[in-house]
Design a binder for these strands. Structure first.
Lengths: 220, 220
DNA sequence: GCAATAGTTTTCGTATACGATTTCGTACTC
DNA sequence: GAGTACGAAATCGTATACGAAAACTATTGC
């Protein structure tokens, strides 16, 4: 994969990218206390650019900031998880519907290949790989979205979701099978040029079902 | 000494609120160059908190920031306007649908009163008041949305829209009449407990129609 | 008269420093 | 032993200062 080799732009940008990456990949898990001076030292910069980075992450919802107290990685609350999923279902549904007319046969083939790999994962029980493939699959579906704002919201949603991973994001074996089937159904809809409404609804439902499965598992 | 009354929160927060307000109310219109030192002086603070504020506003899409060049109020591009409206139609539609079951008779009455005031505005041609009332009306519809993330996105959308006002946001007399009627139709749907899908679709359509009217006017 | 260039000014970017606030630990009182 | 008060340490918040990059301006050469 593309490791973040690029020491791009200002130190503020670097700090932003670095902290964001650590939150998304789980190095800093929810509730983790982000001490400015410590992060600054880790990254070899001063606190000013780190503050800026944290503020930006706060605006994206990845970080909670409290005056004179400090920053923590946000999102321990299960309710938060529910809200995040609901929001994602809406913006991702819209993004997928808007993308659909622009998805070519090659994209569908690529997505299908990914989905078959996912099916393969089910045999060997590889949740980590499954999760990554799942993201790849959905990326194909919404990456052509012509509206950059919606695309941005989708990415933010996925990032939030990823950041919550360690506490609430869990692989539900029983659900995974259905998920793969729903993926295939979505591809069929796109291939046959179904109308935007149908695709949007299907995409939403797919995510809602995933949410329900998580909730059901959590209750047990 | 009547210093600028509410010295709420940190200076960073103050700067954030102040600059945001100026962008939304049109004091700083699209393309306006935001010089850090100047803003800092205006607000009586140093540049550091101003930088933070600008970064946050950038994350919200209200400001465009370019390395070593500076910040400008974003959104002159008409395409941007289209994307903003589309995004808003989606999140606002969802927010309205989610709010609907929680909207009480009193709320409906309040919204209806506002709408009748809007109808009144049509007689006396008062675009400014009409626009404000329109916001009030929609606020009633989505303010009960239980998902804070979606609510936040709606507010951001409205803010972006407001910030674009001076260049592209224009009152379309021919459209205003239909708009008021659609508001009433929306209220009826909510009163009769229509299902979420129907309400969502109606809310979206309402905004799409507004967008179309703007576009038609722009073309002329 | 125009274009290229060198010098000046403006503005950004970040390190450092210090005051303000919170938190935590310890001692004291009831 | 529990609760409170006080002091020390940690951490945040922001002003200032200075280096770096870009934008602007004036001058020179053609």
């Amino acid at each position: 994969m593309t490791e973040t080799v690029i020491a791009a732009g200002s130190k503020s940008e670097q700090a932003y990218a670095a902290v964001k990456a650590r939150i998304v990949d789980g190095t800093y898990s929810p509730g983790y206390r982000l001490v400015l001076a410590k992060i600054a030292e880790d990254l070899g910069v001063s606190v000013v650019p780190v503050r800026e980075a944290i503020r930006r992450l706060e605006a994206e919802g990845l970080v909670k900031f409290e005056r004179n107290v400090g920053a923590t990685v946000s999102g321990i609350d299960p309710t938060e998880f529910l809200y995040t999923m609901q929001t994602l279902s809406i913006v991702e549904g819209a993004a997928t519907a808007l993308s659909a007319p622009l998805i070519g046969a090659a994209d569908v083939a690529r997505a299908r290949a990914v989905n078959e790999e996912m099916r393969d994962c089910l045999q060997h029980f590889d949740p980590v790989r499954f999760t990554r493939l799942n993201q790849d699959f959905h990326s194909v579906l919404f990456e052509h979205c012509p509206n950059p704002h919606i695309l941005d919201l989708v990415h933010r949603g996925w990032n939030r979701l990823a950041s919550l991973r360690s506490s609430t994001f869990r692989f539900v074996p029983g659900r995974a099978h259905d998920s793969v089937d729903e993926h295939e159904a979505l591809l069929k809809l796109i291939e046959t040029g179904a109308d935007a409404d149908t695709i949007e609804k299907a995409a939403r439902l797919h995510r809602s079902a995933t949410l329900d499965a998580y909730l059901a598992q959590t209750k047990q």
